[in-house]
Amino acid sequence: MSAVDGRAIVVTGAGRGLGAAFAADLAGAGAAVVVNDVDAAAADAVAAEIRTAGGCAVADPHTVADPEQAAAIVERCVAEFGAIDGLVNNAGLTYEAMPWEDDPVRARAVVEVNVLGVVYTGLAAIRHMRAAGRGSIVNVSSGAALGQRTIGVYAASKGAVASLTYSWALDLEDSGIRVNAICPKAYTRMVSGSARASRHTPPEHTPDRVAPLVRFLVSDRAAGITGQLVRCTGSELHIVGQPYFKAPILRRESWDVDSVERAFVEVFGAHLEPFGLEKRLPSRLRKWLGPARSA
């Protein structure tokens, strides 16, 4: 018997890519899976493939971006399988644009799916899990949350998912519900059309290589593990560090603009953080270090 055998699990955005791989892997290990995707035909196809392979799955076409429809996804799981033991919040959107060319309509859609979709589906699942005294949620964040060019809104949405994960883990630990997040790196349809895909995501980084991490986190084999952000590229697996308050901490009774400037000139200038996934140095440090050392 596997660690997820007989468990009822919802996977959102499971009509293709990472979600489809997660759903197939979980079902192959004995879980009953709700394959959710707004592309009803894609969800039906994935669920049918799972059943053909001997697994248990139903398709669901609701959108996570609407609170009532998100709740309906969870209720479908409870109605079909009698419970919801796990939730994989995978549904997501992305696009590339420079900030001065960005489209508010597209930005809003990304936030509604990537952030509110996680909130709405998570809240519905949490109510059932809390009543049962157990459950596991795996949210899909991204390394882009550290900062990445041309996808600022997407990066912000995934940073929000990480923060939500940490907060829910704190709130739900005493309820027997674990909440973790993953930062997957995989070549999927969502990224295959972007210039970034060819530069940063080799085709061998396939979704099925990330699936074992999700199965582990959603199962009791990960008992005691909560509030963690885990990055998996298929070949690499590591914990993503949480932001922290960095020393030195300067103290005075009150701060004005002049004293703040002195703090940066005299102290903080030597402690500025490289930023973004490419670890770019702030301009002040680049000027001090020179081109050879700041490259």
Rank of each mutant, 00 (worst) to 15 (best):
V138Y: 02
E273I: 04
F264K: 00
L229R: 10
A186G: 06
R7L: 12
D37Y: 08
G54V: 02
S167F: 09
F268N: 07
V88M: 01
A107R: 04
A132W: 01
N139W: 03
P61A: 14
I177L: 02
M190V: 10
M98L: 15
R16E: 13
A40F: 11
R178W: 05
R215V: 06
G290R: 06
R199Y: 14
V111C: 09
D174W: 02
A292W: 15
G6K: 02
T63H: 12
L237A: 12
Y187N: 05
A125M: 02
A222V: 11
E173S: 09
A125N: 09
V35E: 03
V267P: 10
E273W: 03
L289H: 09
R251S: 14
R127F: 02
F275Q: 13
V210A: 10
Y244V: 12
N180K: 10
A32L: 00
A43F: 07
A91Y: 03
L93K: 10
L123C: 03
V161I: 06
A91L: 08
F268C: 00
A223V: 08
T226L: 04
P207I: 06
G193A: 13
L26R: 04
E236C: 10
G269C: 06
S175Y: 11
G6E: 05
V4S: 09
Q148K: 12
K287C: 13
D44H: 12
I9R: 00
Y244I: 00
L170E: 15
V34R: 03
R251P: 04
W255T: 06
P61F: 10
A79H: 09
G269A: 11
T52F: 05
R199T: 05
P203E: 13
L289N: 00
V113K: 00
R134D: 01
E80W: 07
H271S: 04
V33G: 03
K279I: 00
T206D: 08
A156I: 00
L281W: 13
L170A: 15
V105G: 11
A162P: 00
V110E: 09
L116Y: 15
E204I: 08
E253F: 14
R51S: 05
K185D: 05
G117R: 09
K246R: 15
R286H: 07
V267F: 14
P184H: 12
F268W: 15
R108H: 12
S235E: 10
L172H: 07
A197Q: 10
N89V: 01
A169R: 09
D208P: 00
D171T: 03
G30W: 08
V257S: 10
A8I: 00
I182M: 04
R209Y: 05
R76F: 11
G227A: 01
L250K: 07
W288I: 14
A124E: 00
I177Q: 01
V140N: 08
G143D: 07
I151S: 01
V64H: 02
D44F: 05
F245E: 07
W255K: 06
I73Y: 06
